[in-house]
Design a protein around this nucleic acid. Structure first.
Lengths: 238, 238
DNA sequence: TAACCTCCAGTGGTAAGACCTCTTGGAGGA
DNA sequence: TCCTCCAAGAGGTCTTACCACTGGAGGTTA
């Protein structure tokens, strides 16, 4: 439980939740294991049942336990951290919302970048693509680093565009997307397509062709959106 | 709040949390606004205080409220907007940058709004225009209030568009513009033109004509930009 | 008169106990 | 053997009481 989240949680319950996690870890309780009843746990830990219950709700929100009415509380296999973050974020922003925002901001910015990029800007963009290639050639692929570099490529374009407000907005948006979804580069074939599209965007910017940069950026984001949405449906088939 | 997340949160508290969010939204409670005391909120919503408290804890974990022991519970700006605001406020921005950002965000949003506006949305927009007319007819004109209502009109359109990220971004952008420049409505003839353009935009949205709404919004912002820039040159003749 | 201290009211924080709802298993009857 | 009913156990919610924190008002002292 990291310190920022802990600040946002009720102190008493957060402390009890940690105690419960310690018990699960020390006793090596497997997923599926049924914890003692709430009343008994509250006695054991010498806390009130409402406080114990709130701690269990925190653990449930973290995917560490599953509470079943009439049955009991069961240890659960921890969700992947990213899945958990995605489920928390999705209540505030849907993927389509984020991609729509990305589109309206990044597509015009790529046009402006094409109109004003310097040799130094192009060199920087190319260096970032080379870094992406280096990471891609490694085995196993460090997808987190890849996601960071991918964002860096796009944010560098936006920086070249020269609109500070949009730049700041897209920095925040990339953070939100990073929290909301796994990088689409994980999915079969996406890495190669993305690389080709990045190169084409860079070439358009280098040649000062704003309309082409715009079109290619839109195409790139549309592709990423399709993959992200397809993946989201696989994970949550309703 | 999608179904997967709902499973991770206690049902009762999650429902109450949503009710609280609805209240915050419907009453347009600003960040910093102090909510009624827990006991009063519990009475209002006809729930027990422990359930109400747990709902508030959920909202606090989401960053939507801040609970201060001994003081009360305060509405908080969504974390994304906080982050964006902090980032944006650390720099100054040129008028062209701000208007460019406004254009890329508001113009597509007006199209989306036209595609999904309800009768209630139209009623709200019309009410805002009526308020603008009331303020305009008074002597002397309260330009500060006029600026607020003008922003409200535009932000309501963006809200109808339904993209929360863009909505939060434009809320921050309007604040920045308010700090950066006087309302263009002060300038001779601008008030009448603006009013006509607002009415036309509302009519386009009401008739569901996204392309027209888009075109009129762009025209409106372009006009405001021209006035703002002309005024800036008068003020700063560099 | 200004600064400091104490007390009180309002607000959130926690607990105990009661009651409600759901689930499961066992007993009894057909 | 199958079905129904009931009781026990488990989670879910509420009511009431008490504790801890904060800020403001009033009183006292220098």
């Amino acid at each position: 439980m990291n310190s920022r989240v802990a600040e946002l949680l009720p102190q008493r319950a957060a402390k009890i939740a940690q105690q419960l996690l310690d018990i699960i870890e020390i006793q090596k309780l497997e997923p599926g294991h049924k914890l003692p009843p709430e009343r008994q746990l509250a006695d054991m830990l010498e806390v009130s049942r409402p406080s114990l219950r709130e701690a269990l709700h925190i653990l449930q929100a973290q995917g560490r336990v599953q509470i079943k009415h009439g049955q009991g509380t069961f240890v659960q296999e921890p969700l992947i951290a990213q899945e958990l973050r995605a489920s928390v974020m999705s209540k505030t922003h849907g993927l389509n919302e984020l991609f729509n925002a990305r589109e309206v901001l990044e597509v015009p910015a790529s046009k402006w970048a094409a109109e004003k990029a310097t040799k130094e800007n192009i060199r920087l963009l190319r260096a970032t693509l080379n870094q992406i290639d280096t990471i891609t050639a490694a085995e196993p692929i460090d997808y987190e680093q890849l996601q960071t570099l991918d964002a860096k490529f796009h944010l560098t374009i936006v920086e070249i565009a020269g609109n500070r407000f949009i730049n700041q907005t897209l920095n925040v948006l990339q953070d939100v997307m990073k929290m909301s979804m796994e990088t689409t580069l994980r999915f079969p074939g996406r890495l190669k397509i993305s690389r080709n599209e990045h190169s084409a965007i860079l070439a358009a910017i280098e040649s000062g062709d704003g309309d082409l940069a715009l079109k290619l950026t839109l195409q790139h984001i549309t592709g990423a959106r399709a993959v992200a949405l397809a993946n989201a449906q696989v994970k949550n088939p309703d």
